[in-house]
Design a protein around this nucleic acid. Structure first.
Length: 571
DNA sequence: GCCGTTTTCGGCCCGACTGTTTTCAGTCG
C-alpha cells in the first residue's frame, strides 16, 4: 500500500467528520495527518515496521492506531463507522466547488441528498432554493458545477499551465497600472500539476488592472470580481485567479499567494509563538496591528521571523521551516549549473532535427555537452535503431563532434528494456557508447514482482548509465508502473546507475518525492530533456525545478559535472 | 485529535468574496 492510500483514508475520515459537524480541530488533525503522510519522504510501511509512527509530527496514539488498522484491513474503524452512520456518496459532493461540509450536511438532513445524482434532481426541480440559507443563485451554481465536474479535464500539467500563465503575464505586465507582476501559487512552487493559476499584481489602481484582465479573449466566465481578487474560468476550463495588492505589501502577498497551505499553517503557528501575526499584508507584532514589521519583500518576511530565505520549491511544510531556522537549507541547484543534457533524439529515430542541429541548439542554450540517445529497434513506431544503424549513427555523431566547436557531442542510446529485462541492443555496442539510457516503453502492465526483476536485470549488466523516466507515468494520462522501489534504488546505487529526472512536457518523471528518496538512498540523479526537437531543451528548466523540489544541490546531479568527470565516473 | 524553549490543559492561521441575509455564515485558498 502506498502512502497516498493511507492519506486518502484519513482524508475521508476528516471529510465525514466535518459533514457530521464534529469538532473542527479534530477534523483538522485528520486533515493534517493525511497531508503529512502524502508528503512523507519515506514509506508509511517503513515507519510501521520500525514501530515509529508516533514519531511523525501530527501523528498521535489515536491516528497511529488508525494507520495500523489501514495496514491490516485497507481501511479503519473510524471511517467504517462514519460511513455506516452517513453515506459514501456524500464524499463525492465535496468535489463540487462552492459546496462545503455545512451545506452538504443541510442537504443530507433536510432532503436526504447523498449523491451527485440526487443533488442534480433536487436542483432541477427547484427544491434547493427553498432551503434556509440557499437561494436561486446557489441552486444555479450547483447545477453548473455538476456539469463542469462531469467533463472536467482535471489538473493541468505544469509546463502547459506555465504557458497559459505567461500569456496573461505578457498581456498585463506592460500596462501602466501594473507596478509588478509575479506568477504565484503552486506554479511558482513547481508542482507537477496545477489546479488553478495564481497571478499577483502590485498596483495602485486595481480596477484598471481587473478591467484589462477580464477582457482576455480566452476567458469563458468571470466567476467573481472584488477589489482584491478576480477569478475567471478559461475556455479550456483552467481557472485563473488574479490578486491585486498594494505595492507596499507585495512581498508579503507574494509569500502568501505562493503557499503552500501547509507551509503557511506551520509558519503562522511559529510566528504566533514568537509574538507575531502573519497575513497577506505583512508580519505584525501582536500588540501593534497597524504597521507591519515586514511586508515589502519576501526576504523581509522571512528575516522578521528569524529564518533564512526559503525558496518557493521548498515551501510544502515538510521540514523547510525548521531547516531555515537552523540555517540548514540546501544550496539548491540553479538552471545555470546545468552543463550537459544526456537524453535527446534526432531524425535517426523519432526526433525532428539532425545531430548537428541539436548540437547547435544545445550550444545556444548554454550547454557544454550533450549525449545523442535515439531509440533502439523495439520501438518500431519511433523508427528505433538496429545494431547496424547504431554503428553508423555513432560514426555520424563522432563526425559532428569533431566538426563543431563550443560543445561536446557524446555517443549514446536510449535502449529499451524488454519484457524479460534483456536490453534491446548488442552489448558490445552499448559498451562502446558514452552514455546509455535504459527505458521501458512497452508491456507496462506487468505485475510488480515481474517489473522489479525487469529493472534489476539490466542494472546488473553494468551497461546502463541511467534509467530513463523511471516510473513511466504520463501526467493526466496513466499512472506509473509499479515495482519494488527500494530494491531497485539499492541496486542502482550499487551499480552506479543514475535515475533520471525527465523534464519533458507530459512526464516530469521522476517526481520530486521519488527523486528525494532516490537521493537519500545514495542514488545519483541526472536531468534529461528528452528533447525531440531543437526547442525541446526548455524541458531542462522543468527538470531543474523538480530537482529543487527534491532538495537537490549541484553536487547531487550528474549533469553539473564536466564531461571528463562524467565519463570517468560512469566508466 | 495533537501538541508543548511559557503549557500534560487549553489552545489550535487568516482574510476575501458570495449569496443569503437585515448583520453574517459558508466556502475557498
Amino acid at each position: 500500500m502506498d502512502n497516498a492510500h493511507y492519506a486518502n483514508i484519513l482524508e475521508d475520515v476528516a471529510s465525514l467528520l466535518e459533514i457530521k459537524g464534529s469538532n473542527r480541530f479534530r477534523v483538522r488533525a485528520f486533515e493534517n495527518a493525511a497531508q503529512t503522510l502524502s508528503r512523507l519522504s519515506d514509506s508509511v510501511e517503513s515507519y510501521l515496521e520500525e514501530d515509529e509512527l508516533e514519531s511523525i509530527s501530527g501523528i498521535g496514539d489515536s491516528i497511529a492506531e488508525d494507520i495500523r488498522q489501514i495496514h491490516e484491513t485497507g481501511t479503519c474503524e473510524a471511517r467504517t463507522e462514519l460511513l455506516d452512520e452517513l453515506e459514501p456518496g456524500l464524499l463525492d459532493l465535496l468535489d463540487l466547488q462552492g459546496l462545503g461540509p455545512k451545506r452538504i450536511a443541510t442537504l443530507y438532513e433536510t432532503l436526504d441528498i447523498a449523491s451527485i445524482e440526487a443533488l442534480r434532481e433536487a436542483a432541477e426541480t427547484g427544491r434547493i432554493q427553498e432551503l434556509d440559507g440557499f437561494g436561486p443563485k446557489t441552486q444555479d451554481n450547483i447545477l453548473s458545477e455538476i456539469e463542469r465536474l462531469a467533463d472536467r479535464s482535471g489538473r493541468t500539467p505544469l509546463p502547459a499551465a506555465h504557458r497559459i500563465a505567461r500569456s496573461f503575464r505578457d498581456r498585463l505586465v506592460d500596462h501602466d497600472a501594473v507596478d509588478r507582476l509575479e506568477i504565484a501559487g503552486s506554479l511558482r512552487r513547481g508542482r507537477t500539476t496545477i489546479g488553478d493559476i495564481d497571478l499577483l499584481v502590485a498596483t495602485d489602481t486595481p480596477e484598471d488592472v481587473a478591467d484589462v484582465f477580464v477582457e482576455a479573449p480566452d476567458i469563458d466566465d468571470v466567476m467573481l470580481r472584488g477589489k482584491a481578487k478576480v477569478s475567471a474560468r478559461l475556455i479550456d476550463d483552467t481557472q485563473v485567479d488574479l490578486r491585486l495588492v498594494d505595492p507596499d505589501v507585495f512581498g508579503a502577498a507574494l509569500h502568501y499567494f505562493t503557499g503552500s497551505k501547509q507551509h503557511h499553517v506551520q509558519l503562522r503557528t511559529r510566528a504566533k509563538q514568537a509574538g507575531y501575526k502573519i497575513s497577506e499584508y505583512g508580519v505584525f507584532e501582536q500588540e501593534n496591528e497597524d504597521e507591519p514589521v515586514a511586508a515589502r519583500t519576501e526576504q523581509e518576511v522571512f528575516e522578521a521571523l528569524d529564518l533564512d530565505y526559503i525558496p518557493p520549491e521548498l515551501r510544502e511544510g515538510i521540514g523547510e521551516i525548521e531547516a531555515a531556522a537552523r540555517g540548514d537549507l540546501p544550496d539548491l541547484i540553479e538552471p545555470a549549473d546545468v552543463r550537459g543534457d544526456l537524453h535527446m533524439h534526432t531524425t535517426a529515430s523519432d526526433g525532428s532535427a539532425s545531430i548537428r542541429e541539436m548540437a547547435e541548439a544545445a550550444r545556444d542554450w548554454g550547454l557544454d555537452y550533450i549525449a545523442i540517445t535515439d531509440h533502439s529497434q523495439a520501438v518500431t513506431v519511433a523508427n528505433g535503431l538496429t545494431p547496424e544503424r547504431l554503428e553508423s549513427h555513432m560514426e555520424a555523431i563522432d563526425e559532428v563532434d569533431e566538426a563543431i566547436s563550443g560543445i561536446e557531442v557524446l555517443t549514446g542510446l536510449e535502449v529499451d528494456i524488454l519484457e524479460d529485462g534483456e536490453l534491446d541492443m548488442d552489448h558490445d555496442l552499448l559498451a562502446a557508447c558514452d552514455w546509455v539510457v535504459g527505458s521501458i516503453h512497452m508491456q507496462l502492465d506487468l505485475e510488480p514482482e515481474a517489473m522489479t526483476d525487469r529493472l534489476l536485470r539490466p542494472l546488473e549488466t553494468d551497461l546502463l548509465s541511467s534509467i530513463g523516466h523511471p516510473t513511466g507515468r504520463i501526467l493526466g494520462g496513466r499512472d506509473g508502473y509499479e515495482y519494488d522501489e527500494e530494491t531497485v534504488l539499492e541496486t542502482a546505487a550499487e551499480h552506479d546507475v543514475a535515475m533520471e529526472l525527465n523534464g519533458s512536457e507530459g512526464r516530469l518523471d521522476l517526481d520530486a518525492d521519488r527523486a528525494r528518496r532516490a537521493h537519500e538512498q545514495g542514488v545519483e540523479l541526472v536531468l534529461g530533456s528528452d528533447a525531440h526537437s531543437t526547442g525541446g531543451f526548455e524541458a531542462l528548466q522543468w527538470a531543474v525545478q523538480q530537482a529543487r523540489r527534491a532538495w537537490l544541490t549541484t553536487d547531487d546531479l550528474v549533469n553539473t559535472r564536466s564531461p571528463d568527470d562524467l565519463l570517468g565516473a560512469s566508466a
